Simulated assay, not measured.
Amino acid sequence: MVNTDDFIKRLEIILDYYNLTASSFADKIGVQRSSMSHLLSGRNKPSLDFILKIVEFFQEVDLYWLLNGTGSFPKKNESIENSKPPIQTLNSPTPIDLFSEIQTVTQKEKIQEEVKPKSFFIENENPKEIEKIVIFYKNGTFKAYNPNS
């Protein structure tokens, strides 16, 4: 079980290391500012989702260090470099599959071909076509799609 007081101390170390306020840290990892405040005050315990968001966003944070203080912060450069994909060199014994990304692109193209603008018919009415689709994001931004253009 995670010691909440020690976890809060390690969280404050992360905030100091990246020179972030609690609210900017919450925004970066995608949690509510109030949950960050409740956590730092000791009112709430960290959820697994909260911990995983930290480790996912900040690559230098070691999961075991964050949870129970073992390991180091920031991670040693070797462990960060080992998480990167291999680089193909002339002396590599087995070649890297260069066509896997191309297959993914063609799958995306197939999906885009299948998704065509549709007309919706309501009984006893003229056919209606979609003019624009607008998606609103939680951060206040939006994206508009025009299927006919």
Rank of each mutant, 00 (worst) to 15 (best):
V105M: 07
E109G: 02
N124L: 06
V134M: 07
Q107N: 15
K110T: 12
N139W: 02
S100N: 10
K110P: 00
L90H: 11
I122S: 02
S92N: 15
I111K: 07
F99G: 13
E123P: 03
F99V: 04
E123Q: 09
F136E: 13
F136L: 07
L98M: 13
L98Q: 13
N139G: 02
S92Y: 09
S119A: 05
D97G: 02
E114Q: 08
N139S: 05
K110C: 04
E109I: 14
D97H: 03
I130F: 05
N126K: 14
I96Q: 14
E109W: 04
I133H: 01
I96A: 04
E113L: 07
S100L: 06
E131D: 14
T89D: 06
P85K: 04
I130Y: 05
F136H: 14
Q103G: 06
S92W: 02
S100F: 10
F121P: 01
T94V: 15
Q112S: 09
I135G: 03
E123F: 06
T94Q: 15
Y137M: 03
P86W: 10
V115H: 00
P86Q: 10
I111M: 06
E129A: 08
E125T: 05
I122D: 04
I133F: 02
P85V: 08
Q107S: 15
K128C: 06
I87W: 04
P127R: 04
N126Q: 11
T89G: 09
I111V: 08
K138E: 10
P95F: 11
N124K: 12
E113Q: 11
K132C: 06
I96W: 05
K110I: 11
F121N: 11
V134R: 14
E114P: 00
S92Q: 15
D97P: 02
S83G: 06
L90R: 10
K108L: 12
E123D: 15
V115R: 00
E131W: 04
P95G: 07
G140Q: 08
I102H: 04
G140D: 12
S92H: 13
F120T: 10
E131P: 01
I133T: 03
I96L: 15
F120A: 05
K118G: 00
Q107E: 15
K138N: 05
I135M: 12
Y137N: 03
I133G: 00
K108N: 14
K138M: 01
I102N: 06
N126I: 07
K116G: 01
I87A: 08
T106Y: 13
V134C: 04
F99W: 12
F121M: 11
I111T: 10
E113W: 02
E109H: 03
